[in-house]
């Protein structure tokens, strides 16, 4: 079930890896600590198979910032943190401007802005490498069960097969884990692959 050639898969993984590197560097600047990246994973899944366990997303409840990108191809992007760590990250982001007891008031807006920065950092560098331009929707933040958040995106996309790109972000200071997940519908795949091929031909 893999219409991507080995070279296409390798190229897409590397482009995603570079985008994730840009995202990690933005996150590191925000939390003031080193952010470690796992090996990126790029794989096609049957939509009905996509769940938290398959994607190794630990943590039953997460804070998720979701943003849709559209252009030559469409993608749903998500930044996930385990729920309790999200608050610590908001506190880091806002520093001394907000007392710890007031952080909850800003959680929604701060996480939207954080997701906006991280997801755009990744997608922007990928778009530039592929020589295309993508528009992004405004970010939406929700807290809930990882499976529920994933299934919402998958059912909205309404596609039999989806390409999933994901990578783990580990913030050392908080011993916390975040995830960057992109889901592409199969209808977008052809356009994406055309751009990947063009990228390869320029190397």
């Amino acid at each position: 079930m893999n219409p991507l050639s080995e070279l296409q898969l390798d190229t897409l993984t590397e482009i995603f890896n570079i985008g994730a590197g840009r995202a990690a560097s933005s996150l590191s600047e925000i939390v003031g600590d080193q952010v470690k990246l796992s090996v990126p994973r790029v794989q096609l899944y049957k939509s009905s198979d996509i769940n938290a366990e398959v994607l190794s997303l630990n943590g039953l409840r997460v804070g998720a910032v979701k943003q849709s990108f559209s252009g030559p191809f469409d993608a749903d992007a998500m930044l996930l943190f385990t729920e309790e760590r999200a608050m610590e990250i908001v506190h880091d982001m806002m520093g001394s401007q907000v007392a710890i007891e007031d952080v909850a008031e800003f959680e929604q807006e701060a996480m939207c802005e954080l997701g906006n920065i991280i997801l755009n950092a990744c997608l922007s560098s990928m778009a530039d490498m592929l020589d295309l331009s993508l528009d992004s929707s405004l970010p939406i933040y929700s807290v809930g069960a990882t499976d529920l958040i994933l299934s919402q995106i998958v059912s909205e996309a309404d596609q039999p097969v989806m390409l999933v790109l994901h990578i783990d972000l580990a913030i050392e200071k908080h011993l916390s884990q975040g995830y960057l997940v992109f889901l592409l519908s199969s209808s977008s795949l052809r356009e994406l692959l055309a751009h990947i091929d063009r990228f390869i031909s320029r190397i």
Partner: peptide, 8 residues
């Protein structure tokens, strides 16, 4: 001042 750092 933007998160959208695309070259365009």
């Amino acid at each position: 001042f933007s998160a959208n750092i695309q070259e365009s």
